[in-house]
Design a protein around this nucleic acid. Sequence first.
DNA 1: CAGTGGTCTAGACCACAGC
DNA 2: CTGTGGTCTAGACCACTGC
Lengths: 232, 232
Amino acid sequence: MADPVYIKIVDDIKKMVNSAELKPGDIVPPETALCKEYGVSRMTVRKGLAILANEGYIFSVPGKGSYVKKPEVNKYTLYYDEMNNMINRVDNARLLEVTIIMPDEKLANEMKITRNKHVIMIRRLFYTDGVPIAYDVKYLLYSKGMPIVEKEIEQATFQEMVSNGLPIFALKKRISISAQIPNEEIKRYLNIYDELALLVVEQKLYNSENKPIGIGVTSYRGDYIKLQGNSD
Amino acid sequence: MADPVYIKIVDDIKKMVNSAELKPGDIVPPETALCKEYGVSRMTVRKGLAILANEGYIFSVPGKGSYVKKPEVNKYTLYYDEMNNMINRVDNARLLEVTIIMPDEKLANEMKITRNKHVIMIRRLFYTDGVPIAYDVKYLLYSKGMPIVEKEIEQATFQEMVSNGLPIFALKKRISISAQIPNEEIKRYLNIYDELALLVVEQKLYNSENKPIGIGVTSYRGDYIKLQGNSD
DNA sequence: CAGTGGTCTAGACCACAGC
DNA sequence: CTGTGGTCTAGACCACTGC
């Protein structure tokens, strides 16, 4: 093995967990014992345990020991960008409207603002191979540095509209995914004549103080999108 | 501050990144410089940098230095369990059928098996407050220790069916989410009389060798489910 | 009290980048 | 060659746990 010692420790303990030699709740040998077993110093052992803790295999309790963790079986990682998804890529976008509105009660509530604040509303259609596949509405609180040129808005993702490249680490986002039947307006925009379900993805952006700064709702033709997620 | 030094280092660098004092691609001060700046030993500095690397803020290149990373803006974490979701909780399940079938070409393909292998098919209905809200089909490769008592199958999640509590860390899962129009059979099962969209979640389980061991398709009434995800 | 993990030091040697 | 990060040591002191 060219691997460093701490990797060997990690692999060995992973093997024990995966072969049920160590079960969730079981205690991992104390650091001093592992030091002796592998003939290394404590910092090396701790490096290995830190990796295991980080990957969700174990957790440590000061004064007691390290324990095998119950895995989070229901956790998935999903990559979503309104312009790219698992079946198709948006290759074009058309701006339907960009206006400044006063929010109705529902929107004001969702954005946690009073109804006398102004909100920018952007409505777009997304195309793939010339076919309209999604109807997209965004509501943004105005802030300095936002793109105001229509050409910029047309092709921008939510990120690009709100964060002008700057404190992107601080942004928090939530999405919620649902299935809906299109209303007449969306049917017209997406050329839907038969029964067809929409996959509706709502994005909500928060600044570092957890205040909403934008809401986006993208309604995809159900036959043109599939979102995918992975465990790990 | 009662915080350890490495936490201070982490916070300071995070602040610099979030205030754009350090931009993606910029180089982080070398470890030796940080040692001097904070008056600590190198291991302490490295502990801080390791945390930042782990949280996706920086990455290190041996022989060169540490750099600020572009954040993964499109990454979301989603918790999904066929029995629990954001609007409703499945409080009851009814077993429709459990049989052993020979897979058709499509299924054999998806499970990467030959068509002469046997597959267990389980069909269920999920209820909330006595209302059927989802139609669920699972296909499982038979393996030792699987629940065979109907009462067990009825209330089991996918996890519980496949992994009998053992090497759960090794399991990999994928989900894909789509919106569909129900067929006549599902309409009957879910008491759908009007137009209603289905949120369809397909789960696929793989063992540690990346071979599929089970496929599950759960079709929820669109008005009863909403999946949610978070960045971070 | 002894044993545990949490923090930290002041060194060391290595492999690797770039000049 | 110097400077960088990657690995590792052999100690230290602390706070906490459980007896």
